[in-house]
Each structure stands twice: as structure tokens, then as C-alpha cells.
Amino acid sequence: MAEDGMLSWDESIFRDEHVFEIDYLPETFRHRDEQLEGLQYALRPAVRGSRPLNAMVRGPPGTGKTTAIQKLFGELDGRRGVRTVRVNCQVDSTRYAVFSRIFEQLFEYEPPASGVSFKSLFKQITDHLTDEDEILTVCLDDVNYLFYEGEASETLYSLLRAHETHAGAKIGVLLVSSDLDLDVIAELDGRVQSVFRPEEVFFPAYDEDAIVDILGERVARGFRDDVLALPVLDRVAALTAETGDLRVGIDLLRRAGLNAERRASDAVESEDVETAYETARHVHLSRRVRGLSDPERTLLTTIADHDGERAGTVYEAFHDETGLGYTRYSELVNKLDSVGLIDADYTTVEGRGRSRELSLSYDADAIRDRL
């Protein structure tokens, strides 16, 4: 580094910028021993050739749920006769899409885009498992999206009952949900409830000491020495604790580092953190918006233009834009409400009874920027 504290063109304050990316899998995984033990208990039978126990993994966003499963799946994948598949249900939010992803992971090529029935897809998967004598553990990550689309019970029913229709097929299921308002068991069909008795594993929000510890390790691996002083790290940890989402802190460190480089400075200062926080605190907003379909994006834009107005008024504007009917509109409103992008609250309107008011859960400009 230059002696005057300024970077030259070919210098960087990052040792390894990938450490600050959301999909980075840390070598050490701290403050989650109890949760890892719970998941290992559920998965251990697979190593002995038996069907693993089913598990329900819950906790707020950014509390290490996905990382824990990726860690354990990584350890299991090397074992003979054990297969693991993680499905991102924000992307694959129908039963057919889930099983297409399982097919792709097992056979290492995608099923044909059309012309293959679910029954055929399902049979090829179960035949493969029995022919190869393999035990499959499926993680339905962000399973709350299957519930929002009304696809959860059918998907789970097919997975949990596979051994009844295809003798010898051994499949265990891990459900991961960040929606603490969603009572997963209560929302399932009775026929699924009768066979789904999961182990419960809860991931609480990290406290501030844990956040300092975890982010401190990222700083040591990701930045060069003496780039980020302890008081600056404490400020990042405090802002992260406010949101309860570790991903906000990781993203904040990266953006603060980029801000320091933009100033050609060889150290991250508090001003770099404060400037970066406006963007980093919306890390889950960006993620939620990315997963929206075109009609959902159009509706979100319409609500941004009519923030706080009644559902009927918003519908008229949405219908003019898309031509979609009220039933579909109502389904889309419920979806946006479920994923936390809007609040759809009932209010009493004089002379008109109860009506829903639609308002954004985030600043309108922040949403428009991400749309």
C-alpha cells in the first residue's frame, strides 16, 4: 500500500472479495452448534442406509439456515449411496419445477422442457433411486414460496409417499422457512400432516457479539491487514443487529470496501459504512423483487403509484395495465403481502363496510430502483 494512505491504480484493499458474496460458504461455521447437531440427528440414518428423518428448519432471514444445510450436504455428498438436492423454492415454486430440479441433480441433465408428464418425471426419479440403491435427501429452501403458490401440499405428498408407490425409494425432506408467521404444519393438507412429523430446528437471530465474531472472521479473510479498524467493525455489527440479518452485514462490508477504493483510500472509514448502509439494508428487498413474476412486478409498480389507496382503486389501474381479472389480482395481492413487500390491511370505510388498503413495506423509490 502507498505510504500516504492512498491506493495506486493496481492496488486493492481486498484480499479475497468473494468472501463478501452471499453464496460464499465459510470454512468455519460459528454459533450454530446446537442447530447443526439437530440436523445431523435427522440426516444420520441416511449414512446407515435408512431413510433420513424429516426436518422443519425455521428462523428469520440471514441466520445461517441455508449455510448449515450446504455444509452438511457437502459432507454427505461424498458418501456412497447418499444423494442430496437443494431446491430454491423462490425460483422453483411449483411441484413440477421442484421435481425437474431433482431430476436435473440426479441425472446431471435437464428433463425435456415440454411433453413429459409429472408422473413420468416422478417414475424416472424413483426408478433411479431404487436401481442405484441411493437414499435421497431433498431440501426445499424458502419453502414458504411453495405455500404462497398453493403448491406445498402436493409437492410434499409426492415426496413423502414415494415409498408407498415405489417400493425401495427412500426420500427424506428438509423444509426451510424464513416466514415466521407461516404455520407450516397447519397449512398442509390433512393427508400430508398424517405422514409429516418433522424434527424441529430453530435458528434464532444472532446477537451482536456473535455478529462481531462472524463478521470479524470475514474481515480477516476478505480484507488486507489493518484495512478495517475495530470501531468501524462495531458500527457494522450494530447496523446488522438492527436488521437481524447477517447478510446485510456481509453486503455492507463489501460495499464499504468498494466505497473506500472509490476514494482511493487504503482503509475503510465510518463514512464508507454509512454511505453503503442505504443500499445494504435493502439486501432482502432486492432478493424478494428478483423472484417476482412479470404480473407481480407490474402490480408492485401499480401499488407504488397508488400507495395507501384502497384495493378497488389499485385494481382498476392494474386491470387497465394488464387486462387481468379480479380473482387473479387478489391472488397476486396476497402473494406480495405474504413475501413482505406490501401490507394489505383491512379498514372500515364509512358507508362501504370493510375494505383493504394496500401500502408498501419499503420506501417507494427503493422498490422502483429494484424493479
Rank of each mutant, 00 (worst) to 15 (best):
F107I: 10
D131E: 13
E108S: 15
L136S: 02
T126V: 10
T126K: 07
E134D: 09
I125F: 00
I125P: 00
F122H: 15
S114W: 06
Q124E: 14
T137Y: 00
F118W: 04
Q124Y: 10
F118G: 03
D131C: 04
L121Q: 02
I125K: 00
L121I: 03
A113M: 13
V116R: 11
G115L: 02
T126F: 08
V116F: 06
T130W: 04
Y109W: 09
H128S: 13
T137S: 02
S117F: 04
P112A: 05
Q124H: 11
S120L: 12
E132K: 14
V116N: 05
I125R: 01
E132W: 03
I135S: 10
F107L: 14
I135T: 15
E132S: 13
K119S: 15
T130N: 06
E110Q: 15
P111A: 10
S114K: 13
E110T: 14
Y109N: 10
A113R: 15
L121D: 01
K123C: 04
T130I: 12
F118R: 04
P112I: 05
I135Q: 09
E108G: 10
A113G: 14
L136M: 06
K123M: 08
E110G: 12
E134G: 02
L136R: 03
I135C: 09
S114L: 10
Y109M: 09
P111N: 10
G115S: 01
E110D: 13
Y109I: 08
K123Q: 12
A113V: 11
K123Y: 08
S120I: 10
E134S: 11
V116T: 13
S114C: 05
K123E: 12
Y109C: 06
Y109S: 11
D133M: 07
E110K: 15
G115I: 00
E108M: 12
V116E: 12
T137V: 11
Q124N: 12
S114P: 02
I125H: 00
D127G: 02
T126Q: 08
F107P: 07
F107S: 06
D133R: 15
E132C: 04
Y109K: 13
F107T: 09
P112M: 02
I135D: 07
H128K: 13
F122E: 12
T137Q: 00
L136P: 03
Q124G: 07
E132Q: 12
F118L: 10
E132V: 07
E110W: 09
S117I: 05
F107H: 11
F122L: 12
K123R: 14
E132H: 09
F118N: 03
P112T: 05
L121Y: 01
E110V: 14
Q124D: 13
G115H: 00
T137R: 01
D133Q: 13
D133K: 14
G115V: 02
K119R: 14
D127M: 01
G115D: 00
G115C: 00
T137E: 00
T130H: 05
F118V: 03
P111I: 11
L121S: 01
A113C: 06
L129A: 04
D131F: 08
F118T: 05
K123G: 06
F122D: 12
V116S: 08
S117M: 03
I135H: 06
S117W: 02
E110I: 07
S117Q: 05
T126E: 06
H128D: 06
T126N: 09
S120W: 07
T126A: 10
D127A: 03
S120P: 03
T130A: 10
L129Y: 03
T130V: 15
S120R: 14
F107C: 07
